[in-house]
Design a protein around this nucleic acid. Structure first.
Ligand code: FES
Ligand code: FES
Lengths: 147, 147
DNA sequence: GAGTTTGTAGACCATTTTAGTCGACAATAG
DNA sequence: CTATTGTCGACTAAAATGGTCTACAAACTC
């Protein structure tokens, strides 16, 4: 039940954008430096986030990326879905046909419960929630370095 | 958030043992055939389960493996732990020192929530629960083939 | 419109993990 | 002793992961 670095890096990057939302777009370079993510890897994480409508980008000088919506409208389940795919721990939870006996398989029921539990957590957490938790933890922090 | 085949195969194998618990040990060969698991792979799954005290084994003719305890005393979290390691989605949840800022990291808090949610499901499900769910689903099934 | 600054797309690659095989061996029933 | 079972370790093929690099496209500045 591991999460790849994609979701970890991606969430950190989005949190960074959420914190400085009013300051306009941030460059990928800034995000990469501040969040300790390899720049050329971060590019690849942005692609699905942009395609998924979570982030918008502006090219050219003074460009960068920013959240496409306000942070309280972005739930983590969407972020994780875009970066890692479904949260189903085994494929047949989403797609019963891959196992021929899935109709009567009780282990599949457990894996479904697992997916439901994970989604419940991720659906109930928005980027704004993270920003607020962070304010509570380090109210006087000036810049947000590596989380 | 994927589960490897180890946990899937392992759980199926244990469920098989739970269903036929009173019949004494089953051979690995039987389990492998019935649950569609490569025999030589199944051997490797049994090792940690035996070491972890979930399964006991008997060598020699008429030998095999059986549950080491009654099925209602075996929770799935133990099984998954033995076969996959911790359910923590990122390492710093279990071991905060791997990230230097873990004290103030809010994304880590989310991953902790995730682990908690997963563990809650797995701790509240025993092999006996699975057996009962199965009886309810296919009360007249004679043998348990591939789940 | 030349030049610089940004993001975009794709091919490419090294390492690690996963899933599995194989062969030798150990225990034990008969 | 021998057949039958489990045990252990080395090995391997294939996939996933985590990343780099090059070429390019858009947009702003002068
Ligand atoms: S249906 Fe897919 S594991 Fe049983
Ligand atoms: S502390 Fe490990 S990801 Fe933030």
């Amino acid at each position: 039940m591991k999460l790849s670095t994609r979701a970890q890096y991606g969430t950190r990057a989005l949190l960074y954008l959420a914190v400085r939302q009013e300051k306009g777009p941030a460059t990928l370079k800034d995000i990469a430096r501040s969040q300790q993510i390899p720049l050329s890897y971060l590019e690849h994480l942005m692609t699905p986030l942009i395609a998924g409508g979570v982030v918008r980008s502006v090219r050219g000088p003074r460009g960068g990326v920013a959240l496409a919506r306000s942070s309280d409208k972005i739930k983590l389940d969407e972020v994780v879905q875009l970066l890692e795919g479904s949260s189903a721990p085994v494929e047949c939870v989403d797609n019963p046909n891959v196992c021929d006996r899935s109709r009567s398989c009780v282990t599949r029921d457990v894996w479904s419960d697992l997916k439901r539990a994970v989604d419940t957590v991720l659906e109930s957490t928005t980027l704004q929630d993270l920003v607020e938790r962070q304010k509570r933890k380090q109210p006087s922090e000036q810049e947000m370095y590596y989380i």
